[in-house]
């Protein structure tokens, strides 16, 4: 049975921005569902609608069979929401934070006490129960934040960008907790993220969302398989971005008819050429291009990754650090600076 099912869920903000545009998806019980897209793609807006925090303009969603528009109360008692901000009260202790949420979810005093102890163990905060949250580190706060969304044993927990603002080491720790959570508690997890790595690492299935629309849904493996072969990416090189249009069309014309090329994909500032074996194709590609008098600035070979999947469905790359869509040329410039 699906824990979440959305039906043409749409949100139009005042001013006419269609932040979420007729989104349909289902999340099955017990799975980690990754909602992947750049900032401004509509991830958080979707999550907030399903969490009853904002009203959809049209369409609706069912949580464990309850309609978010008709039964918001029933929905709220079955979900845990862990927002992008760490919504814990730092002037209270961890136990006080958790206990208050137990009350909000109408649990009895005895149950709360027991759940609080279990949860502190689950998120590895034993010994910090009665310390003020203001003394917690960022990672500890996030773990308490997650525990607060779990106190009532919800059907599904929403993690909105759970590792934004955490350092890489803490991020990996939080990932471990999230995976344990799914395993130990059997809770369904709806994870929104703009980190490819995070989605790849945690999610059983991924939906790629861009400009308010779902572009693809599948397991990470399925999505990667939809990209056949290795990607050889070519660009005219740094400082020649103004020639890229010409470069792309000439390179595409030279290569697209070739037997060893599976397909080509135009992107901002360059061309991705998908081939069976990337490394052995490079000399052939170079030879063909130079015979057409085309000068290549940069060339790189990569195995299919979620980045390629994202590129295939949206025509753009996603920049890992900022999560903002960017042109291929920019990515290349950034890479070359790093080397």
């Amino acid at each position: 049975m699906s824990v979440i099912a959305t039906y043409q869920l749409t949100k139009v903000f005042p001013g006419g921005v269609r932040a979420v545009d007729g989104v349909d998806f289902e999340v099955n019980a017990g799975e980690i569902f990754g909602f992947l897209g750049p900032n401004g793609a509509g991830k958080t807006t979707t999550s907030k609608m399903v969490n009853t925090l904002i009203q959809p303009t049209s369409g609706t969603a069912l949580i464990s069979g309850f309609d978010i528009r008709k039964d918001p109360g029933e929905v709220r008692s079955r979900i845990g929401y862990v927002g992008q901000d760490v919504g814990v009260d730092e002037y209270a202790t961890g136990r006080e934070n958790l206990t208050l949420y137990g009350r909000f979810y109408r649990l009895g005093g005895k149950t709360i006490k027991q759940r609080v102890n279990e949860l502190f163990e689950l998120v590895d905060l034993i010994g910090y129960e009665d310390k003020m949250v203001s003394t917690y580190s960022g990672g500890m706060r996030k773990r308490l934040d997650i525990a607060m969304g779990l106190i009532h044993q919800p059907d599904v927990i929403f993690l909105d960008e759970p590792t934004v603002g955490l350092d890489p080491q803490t991020r990996v720790h939080v990932w471990d907790y999230i995976r344990d959570l799914a395993k130990v508690m059997g809770v369904t997890i709806f994870l929104t993220t703009h980190y490819m790595e995070e989605a790849d690492h945690l999610a059983d299935r991924i939906a790629i969302i861009d400009r308010g629309k779902i572009m693809a849904i599948g397991t990470p493996a399925e999505l990667k398989q939809s990209i056949s072969g290795d990607a050889v990416t070519l660009s005219p090189g740094a400082g020649k971005a103004n020639e890229s249009q010409d470069f792309i069309s000439r390179a595409e014309a030279a290569l697209s008819g070739q037997a060893f090329v599976i397909r080509t994909q135009v992107m901002d500032g360059g061309l991705a050429v998908y081939v069976e074996h990337g490394e052995s194709a490079v000399p052939e590609i170079m030879r063909l291009l130079s015979s057409h008098g085309i000068e290549v600035g940069t060339i790189s070979v990569s195995r299919p990754s979620l980045d390629d999947v994202f590129l295939k469905y949206t025509g753009r790359t996603i920049r890992a650090e900022e999560g903002t869509p960017t042109t291929y040329a920019e990515v290349q410039r950034k890479r070359s600076r790093r080397q």
């Binding site: 969490n51 009853t52 925090l53 109360g73 709220r76 008692s77 979900i79 845990g80 929401y81 862990v82 927002g83 992008q84 901000d85 760490v86 919504g87 814990v88 009260d89 730092e90 949420y101 909000f104 979810y105 109408r106 934040d145 607060m148 929403f158």
Partner: peptide
């Protein structure tokens, strides 16, 4: 500011 309110609003409080 701290996100405490939106977290609370997602509960049946």
């Amino acid at each position: 500011d701290m996100g405490i309110l939106s977290k609370m609003l997602a509960t049946p409080v």
